[in-house]
Each structure stands twice: as structure tokens, then as C-alpha cells.
Design a protein around this nucleic acid. Structure first.
Lengths: 200, 200
DNA sequence: TAATTAAATTAACAGTGTTAACTTACATTC
DNA sequence: GAATGTAAGTTAACACTGTTAATTTAATTA
């Protein structure tokens, strides 16, 4: 029993070790430029060992994405507890999303930017992505209930806002050479424009 | 002289033939899933012949992108001639941008989404994508001149709008497994929200 | 101690981008 | 018209890739 647990723990450790190494390398060199052998080398195992923990290279990437989705969702949920004003919660949630991306550009890149060569199965219902997005849906629902918005289609409004903040986040993360105006100014402008565009 | 020209013309033809075949296959199967040999097979040449016309696979894709985005810039410019109403020009220009991206997802991905390692040298400053962005600046300038907008910072407003439409475009291209609302509805919502958010 | 099982490895396959050496066909020059 | 030069295209090869199957190694159980 004790042995069994220690073994399972070891197995979990190696699994996490693979994910950490892979995430770091994917971000540094790009998904396509990181081979299974390179990942294995980095952690001192043979390439095929990875296949004992992940179905294939795409699955490995997908699992990394799930982990990051979970962290983002937890952050936004925590933020939503700090206020009772729906619009205020919405604004600070959107800000948290963008700054989470800028604070963890590597993770954001993997989850939202790195192109997935083959889209994983349509199991979105069980993913952490749904949980993260649900917090946005919830806040928008509160805004609708409080009769603060022009329209009442919660799903449509949520996706509209996500598109907007994803746009500014991803542009700021990767197009460093583009002569953007000051970061905070641009972020505020996007969020102000979006909220101003949906509210009554 | 006549012979020389005919030869050069043939060479141009083959170059274009390669680009056409490659573009078609990149879009249909994805950049990563199309090999140089497959492209060569399709046009009845050996794979290495492609290297007589393009530095490498990335260069081939980059040349395709430049050609495609020259068309985007031309499209938007043409659209801007159809109306005198700045806001109307703005709206149809934004729509053209998004639909162009969805129509050419591989090219859009490389120019605006793919992380740095693959990006070629002079990236944004000399690209046709930059030219397209300049047309956005111009139209925003017209809106400001016509006193139609809340604020007057042309650069800030242009970048805000770009962030918004880039967001919806890249999300729709990459996150195919996410249960988006109907595409046209979402695109209209984003553009309506953005314009509603900046106008007086 | 012997049998079983899990974990990790080696070997191999079919495919990749890319380079270098080679062949072919044609234009130019003597 | 034959010899030369040159450009276009091909073949062969290299060092990789993701992935599977067969095999070894180590630990647990009987």
C-alpha cells in the first residue's frame, strides 16, 4: 500500500516532469521545432517513455493546455469574489485575463496562440477551458440580470468580449517589433471600448 | 534576348505554379502536413526543384503570404472607394479583414499568429500586412476629422480595433473545437461592439 | 526463490527538410 | 558544325522526425 502509493506518486512526478520540460521547450523553440527525443533528452529518459504517459505529441500539448486553463480559471474566480458590482467584476476579470497572459506569456502562448496541428477531440464539455469561460458567462449573466447591457444574448456577448481581450493579449505578446502605443493604455482602451460597446 | 525573355517567363510560370499548388495544399491540409515532396509530386517535378525557386519551405510560405496580403490591402482599398461615409468604410473594411483571414487561414496564421522562430526577417514593417493596417489608420483619421468619434488618438483607436478583429479572426481560425456561436453573428457582434464603443 | 508485472529501453519504419553531386538540354562561341 | 559554358532539373544521401513493436530491466507478489 505504501509502496503502491509511492510508485503512483513517482509516476505522477515523471508525468509532470515531462509536461514542464515540454512546455518550456515548446515556448522557447516552438512546438514544431521540439522533438520527442529532445524532450526526453532534457529529462534523461528515452523518447518512447513519453508514450507511456501521453498518447502522442498532440496529446502532450493538449494536457499542458488543460493545466494552464485551470490556473487561469482559478485566478478569475478569486477576483470575482472581491466585488458585487457586475460591471466592475467584468472589467477586473477582463483585466486579469489580459495581465495573466502578459505575466505568463509562455503559458498563454501555448494555450491560446500556438497552433494546434490537429484539434483534439470535441470534449470541450469536460475541459478546464469550459470552466474558465464559464466564469465570464456568469458575470455577463449578472450584468444582463441587472439590466445593464444593450443585448441579452449571454453567449454572444461573452464570446465577443473574449475575442477582444484575446486579440490585444496575443498581439502584445508576440508582435514586439510593432510600434504599439503604451501597453496599459492599449489594454484600457480595448476594455473600455468593449464595455462601452455592450452597455446601455 | 527573345529567348532570354521566354526563359525567364517560363521560370516565372513554374515559380507561380509551385506557389499555387503549395497554397492550395497548405490551406487544405495545413502547413505542417504538406511536404515538399507532395508539392513537387502535384506539379510533376522533383522536390529539390522547389529549392531553385525558394530558399526553403518557410520562404515558400512567406512568398505566398505576401502575395495574398497584397490582395487584402487591395481589397480593402477598393472597398473604401465604394462609400464616402467614413464609418461605413470602417465597418466594411473590418469585415473584409476578418473574412479575408478566414478565407486564407494558413496565410493569416503565419503572418499574424505564428510565434517568432518561423517569422522571416523584416517582419511587419515591410509586409503587405502593414500596408493593410495603414489603410485602417487612414479611415480612422477620416472618422476623427469628421468628428464622429469619442476620442481623437488615431493610433490608439486603430490599434484597439485591430486587436478586436485580430482576436475574433485568430480565435475562429485556431480554436475550431470551441463551441462558437454562428460565425457571422459573432463577427458582426465584435465589429458592432467595437464601433459602438468608439463612436460618439 | 520463482513467477508476474510494470517501467523503460533498443531497434526499426516510413516519412521529413535540405544539401551536394550529377545529368541533361540548350545557347553561345570558336 | 563542333566545342564549350550554363542553367534546369534529377538522384542520392544525410540527419532528422513521430511512432510502433519487440525486448530488456527492475520491482512486486506468490
Amino acid at each position: 500500500m505504501a509502496n503502491r502509493n509511492r510508485l503512483q506518486s513517482d509516476k505522477e512526478n515523471l508525468r509532470q516532469e515531462i509536461m514542464d520540460a515540454a512546455r518550456e521547450m515548446f515556448v522557447a523553440e516552438g512546438y514544431a521545432n521540439v522533438s520527442m527525443r529532445k524532450i526526453a533528452d532534457k529529462i534523461g529518459y528515452s523518447a518512447t517513455t513519453i508514450y507511456l504517459y501521453f498518447k502522442d505529441k498532440n496529446d502532450l500539448l493538449h494536457q499542458i493546455c488543460e493545466q494552464t486553463f485551470a490556473r487561469l480559471a482559478a485566478n478569475i474566480k478569486a477576483i470575482n469574489l472581491l466585488s458585487d458590482n457586475p460591471l466592475e467584476k467584468l472589467r477586473s476579470g477582463l483585466r486579469e485575463y489580459v495581465y495573466f497572459g502578459l505575466k505568463h506569456p509562455s503559458q498563454y502562448e501555448i494555450v491560446f496562440i500556438t497552433p494546434l496541428p490537429i484539434q483534439p477531440e470535441g470534449d470541450f464539455e469536460d475541459s478546464n477551458g469550459k470552466i474558465a469561460f464559464d466564469t465570464l458567462r456568469t458575470v455577463i449573466g449578472e450584468c444582463v440580470t441587472a439590466n445593464l447591457l444593450k443585448h441579452k444574448d449571454i453567449e454572444l456577448i461573452s464570446q465577443t468580449l473574449w475575442a477582444g481581450i484575446h486579440g490585444v493579449t496575443s498581439l502584445l505578446i508576440q508582435h514586439g517589433s510593432f510600434p504599439f502605443v503604451e501597453r496599459e493604455k492599449l489594454i484600457d482602451s480595448v476594455i473600455d471600448t468593449l464595455i462601452s460597446g455592450i452597455r446601455k
